[in-house]
């Protein structure tokens, strides 16, 4: 395999908060440069823990994680993280949150330039007018867009997203998915700008709409069950994907894999209520 295909590797990684109770058991996976990987699984399967391992926020009990051949030791600005509704400091305006990240990433020559860059990225996500607002003054969707703007602004090659739209209502979530598709696909093709995304979600449709690949995780202990290629053409839109003939079979396959088809909560018609 070439280096491009083996950009992020997770090699036989196990993790447990307590000695004899594993949260993650022998996870191995390889992510290529520029790939969009969605990870899905029931709650408690350790998908967020896997993301925290990749972010360097926790260390594996066993095994090795590498990015571009280098072992992951601690968090780094080469991996931008978007959490579920808490990526921003509430005492800083949206713009200052981004300016701080830029400062840390040593981007922009001075304060004025950094403020301009921050504004540019806020405009990119449609928040040009809201830079001076505090995160608490924005809606959940706007906060997540700001968090995405910050992640993009520091120009990290890797985006780690931990259920970033999980707390949003249905319509807002759909819009954020389209925005993310737009932004990500806009950068692909360009070898340098193309970002590798690791996207954790509990929403089957979201995984199919966004991902090149969907990893299905099982629980107790957390492990990889299946790795499914999403055979939907790029560039995608949310609507286009939903209407594509390959969509339903993929979704059904995933639901089967999750062994949750029988679970009333995840039936398509009633799934909405479960997320709001």
């Amino acid at each position: 395999m070439t280096d491009t295909q083996r950009y992020i590797t997770v090699d036989d990684v196990s993790f447990g908060y307590e000695a004899n109770q594993l949260t993650l058991d022998s996870i191995s996976l390889i992510i290529g440069r520029g790939e969009f990987v969605a990870v899905i699984g029931p709650s408690g399967c350790g998908k967020s823990t896997l993301l925290r391992l990749l972010a360097g926020l926790v260390e594996p009990t066993r095994g090795k994680l590498t990015v571009d051949g280098q072992p992951i030791c601690g968090p780094g600005l080469d991996r931008a993280v978007v959490f579920q509704d808490y990526s921003l400091f509430p005492w800083m305006t949206c713009r200052d949150n981004i300016v701080l990240a830029l400062e840390q990433a040593k981007l922009g020559a001075n304060k004025t330039e950094r403020r301009q860059i921050a504004l540019d990225f806020l405009s990119l996500v449609g928040l040009a007018q809201d830079g001076d607002k505090l995160p608490g003054q924005l809606s959940g969707g706007m906060r997540q867009r700001t968090a995405i703007a910050r992640a993009l602004a520091i120009n990290a090659p890797i985006l780690l997203m931990d259920e970033p739209f999980g707390a949003l209502d249905e319509i807002t979530r759909a819009r954020q998915q389209d925005l993310l598709l737009d932004l990500w696909q806009g950068g692909q093709g360009d070898e340098k700008a193309g970002k590798t995304v690791f996207f954790v979600t509990h929403d089957v449709e979201e995984a199919v709409i966004l991902g090149d690949r969907v990893m299905v995780m099982g629980t107790r202990p957390g492990r990889l069950v299946r790795d499914i290629q999403v055979t939907l053409p790029r560039p995608r839109t949310r609507m286009g994907s939903l209407q594509h003939p390959n969509f339903s079979p993929l979704r059904d396959l995933l639901l089967n894999e999750l062994n949750l088809v029988v679970d009333e909560l995840l039936l398509p018609g009633s799934s909405h209520g479960a997320h709001i």
């Binding site: 926020l57 968090p75 600005l77 993280v81 959490f83 808490y86 400091f89 701080l100 990240a101 840390q104």
Partner: peptide, 8 residues
Amino acid sequence: DNARCLNL
């Protein structure tokens, strides 16, 4: 977590 991710 957030601060650590930003290397603060």
